[in-house]
């Protein structure tokens, strides 16, 4: 955050630090809560597993294993900030992955195949955005069409999995950039890069601020002379693009494209974004929060597998967390409505 603002000195007696903080950063509270949950999970697991949990290997693997989800969550954050939702991302990821695998298997060079994967995702996003913005289709339904389309196209490309042998793609996964016991892969760097770019765009560009303004009140944003139509369509295009990128990351991760990949992943992405403190009605949240949300998700998954418990607990716990956050958000929204 930037330094203390000028102009606050106009007040005679300033309110307490806490009041100022709350009035400035009240919307960050849910994200702080996510950080707190992440810390509790870490500490709890560390104690429970007697010091076997917080190891450089585990933490590094957390990013590696969830890189695709992180990329999806970044795109989803844009859409949810506008007050929309994108159910298509899991399918788009599968489509992009299998498309890339097939192109590579047929000898297409990677520098053609990779842009094709990204464009394929962005095109589905564009379709959803146009339906939402220009045909007044509810985001839920429009992205549902995207979900069907992505999944169907994935099977059109191939009905079974295709192994990827292109060294450039495999390099993304196999390379370990090490620092002691810590390591990071290029896929991890891609995911973190996506977060960084998204954070820049959302906080330091007019386009990004328009996304927030739309989520706050689309009509106000329009009356304020912002280019809302373009921004809203772009949010879905970005989400589609991220779906395409996630397809690349997942293909590198699994060494193959598979048309059944990512069934239900859209729900995981939505859950991660919400747990990270972005409010589903739009306008409030941070892409950094979504990253935290993905880590919470990944940590729960790791803990469950460490404990040897059923993976089904994963869905239940994530569902419960989602519920908790939704109810809290509802309470926050109800309070701010009550103020008016």
């Amino acid at each position: 955050m930037t330094a203390m603002a000028t102009g606050t000195g106009t007040r005679a007696a300033g309110p307490s630090f806490l009041q100022t903080f709350v009035s400035r950063h009240g919307s960050m509270m849910p994200t702080f809560a996510a950080v707190a949950i992440l810390l509790v999970l870490f500490v709890g697991a560390e104690i429970f597993l007697r010091g076997d949990f917080i190891t450089p290997r585990n933490i590094s693997a957390l990013l590696l294993d969830n890189a695709y989800l992180l990329v999806l969550a970044v795109g989803m954050t844009f859409v949810i900030l506008t007050g929309g939702i994108d159910l298509s991302v899991g399918s788009v990821m599968a489509f992009s992955g299998i498309l890339g695998a097939r192109l590579l298997a047929e000898g297409t060079p990677a520098f053609v195949a990779v842009p094709a994967m990204l464009l394929g995702g962005a095109a589905i996003g564009l379709m959803i955005g146009i339906l939402v913005q220009y045909f007044n289709v509810q985001p839920f339904i429009a992205s549902l069409a995207g979900l069907f389309l992505g999944r169907g196209l994935a099977y059109v490309v191939s009905l079974s999995s295709i192994k990827v042998e292109e060294p450039g793609i495999l390099w993304l996964q196999s390379t370990r950039i090490r620092l002691g016991d810590w390591y990071i892969t290029p896929t991890g760097l891609i995911a973190l890069g996506a977060v960084a770019i998204a954070a820049f765009v959302l906080h330091l560009t007019r386009f990004g601020r328009t996304i927030y303004a739309i989520g706050g009140s689309e009509q106000s944003a329009r009356l304020m002379g912002l280019r809302t139509a373009r921004a809203k369509v772009m949010a879905y295009v970005i989400s589609g693009l991220c779906g395409g990128l996630a397809g690349l990351v997942l293909t590198a991760y699994s060494g193959a494209g598979y048309p059944r990949n990512g069934i239900g992943t859209e729900l995981d992405a939505i859950a991660a974004v919400v747990i990270g403190g972005t409010i589903l009605t739009g306008g409030r949240g941070y892409v950094i929060g979504s990253m935290i949300g993905v880590f919470v998700y990944g940590t729960i998954k790791t803990i469950i597998s460490f404990m040897g418990a059923e993976q089904s607990w994963m869905q239940i716990i994530v569902g419960a967390l989602l519920l908790l956050f939704i109810v809290v958000q509802r309470a926050i929204v109800a309070r701010s409505e009550g103020r008016r």
Partner: peptide, 25 residues
């Protein structure tokens, strides 16, 4: 009020007319 309650006061005043520096607001 046709403003965005989820943004800061300064932003609501300046939205769309923010001074920019080095590619960002």
């Amino acid at each position: 009020v046709n403003l965005c309650g989820n943004l800061t006061v300064a932003e609501n005043v300046m939205l769309g007319h923010e001074p920019r520096k080095g590619g960002g607001i």
